[in-house]
Simulated scan of single mutants.
Amino acid sequence: MKPILTLLATLALLTASLRAEIGLISPADAKALIENPDAAKRPIVLDTRGGYKDYFRGHLPTAHHINFDTLRGTDHAVPVQYLPEDITRALLLRAGADKNRTHIIYATGEKLPNDEILSASMVAHVLEKAGIEDIRILDGGLPGWQAAGFAPTQEYFGNPTGSLPEKGHPEIAATIDDVLAEKDQPGVILVDARPQNEYLGQDEIWLRKGHIPGAVSFHWARLMASDNTHKFKPFAEVKAELEKAGITPDKKVICYCGTSREGSLVRFYLAHVAGYPNVRLYEGAWKEYVWVKNKSLPAETTAPTVK
């Protein structure tokens, strides 16, 4: 009886502290929620990894697999664009996304160059845009879960059909027209979340080289622990770095990257870890910017002076 009472007391404390919000959750707190004796109050756990065999090898208990890349596709020749709202909602409902439940999102692959944490932040962005307001990224991911002494499972888990809010939050996304209209306005800063070699055009990836003129470089990995790229650094550890780059909470921040995954992590961190009040993600990203307007939009290959 005593372990059950202890669990109930822990859940009561979590319920008081984890009100509907978006942020991080520790492995221990996630485990307590997953093991809630009341199944109706357990979280929706989403394994966002692109490798389905990784899910088969082991995942969090009650985790439903949703491959992050099923939420994107080619549109008007531009690859990996976010899908139309009706298709996205259908996929989220199929994954069990529910307006009345907490969502715990995670992936794995703790060391660079592995970047699967970006899958988690991308899915978190899609859920938030759809109107879900109770989202937690598992701090440390599956490696953190195992390091805490918690075992993964190989048992499949499928969520029942979910229930989404009628209204979403489209305001967290920026379009190409938003970027072009606002990028040179006072108080607006564009943040390029890619590695610096891509920012400077020293890569073999992109049709055109460089970055959106005026954008500052801040690689997403600078926000993560060096020994686990799924573990977020406390804001106090990166505050000075962000300020040096000119990324401050008084500005309107537009994050972007190559395909919108890296940018989604920087946006998540600024908005939901650092608490910046006005942060958006340019979803089209560099892949769109270099193609639209008949490839005529300007690009830079040198870093601007931070004002």
Rank of each mutant, 00 (worst) to 15 (best):
Q202P: 00
T153M: 11
K167W: 00
G246Q: 09
E21G: 15
H65R: 14
G96E: 12
M1F: 06
W291Q: 15
L112N: 07
L13T: 14
A299S: 13
I205L: 13
L71T: 05
P195S: 08
P113R: 06
K233L: 15
P37I: 08
T88V: 15
G168E: 06
L164Q: 07
N67D: 15
K183I: 04
H211G: 09
P113G: 05
K99A: 14
Q196S: 10
A181P: 04
G158S: 12
A299R: 07
T74P: 14
G187I: 06
S264E: 05
K41P: 00
I212G: 05
K111Y: 01
H59W: 02
R280P: 05
F235G: 00
I25F: 05
G201V: 00
I247P: 05
G149W: 09
G131M: 09
A30R: 11
I137W: 07
A245Y: 00
Y289E: 04
Y106I: 05
K307Y: 03
S121G: 07
S17W: 01
G131F: 06
R261F: 12
E198S: 06
A16V: 10
T62K: 14
I172K: 06
N114S: 14
E155C: 00
V80S: 10
S119R: 13
D203K: 00
T6R: 13
A107Y: 02
I117A: 13
I44S: 04
A40L: 12
L265S: 07
I87F: 03
R42S: 04
T108K: 11
T62G: 00
L11R: 11
K244M: 08
V279P: 07
K53E: 13
I212R: 09
P152Q: 08
L92Q: 08
A63V: 04
I44Q: 10
N159I: 10
A173G: 01
K233G: 04
S264A: 15
D250C: 04
F56N: 10
A225C: 04
D86L: 05
D47R: 05
N278R: 13
A28D: 13
H211W: 08
V290L: 05
R94K: 15
P234A: 09
F56C: 10
Q81L: 03
E171I: 03
A120M: 09
A173F: 01
P37H: 07
P79Q: 03
R49Y: 02
N197H: 08
T62A: 08
L270A: 02
L83R: 14
W291S: 12
R267F: 01
T74M: 11
Q202D: 13
L14G: 05
L83H: 04
K252G: 03
I87M: 10
K209F: 00
G23K: 11
A120D: 11
F218L: 02
I132R: 06
G141I: 08
L118G: 06
L265T: 12
I105E: 10
L91A: 07
K129A: 15
I132L: 15
H169W: 01
V273C: 04
P186V: 11
Y289M: 04
H125G: 02
E155I: 05
K183S: 12
A63P: 03
L33P: 01
P304A: 10
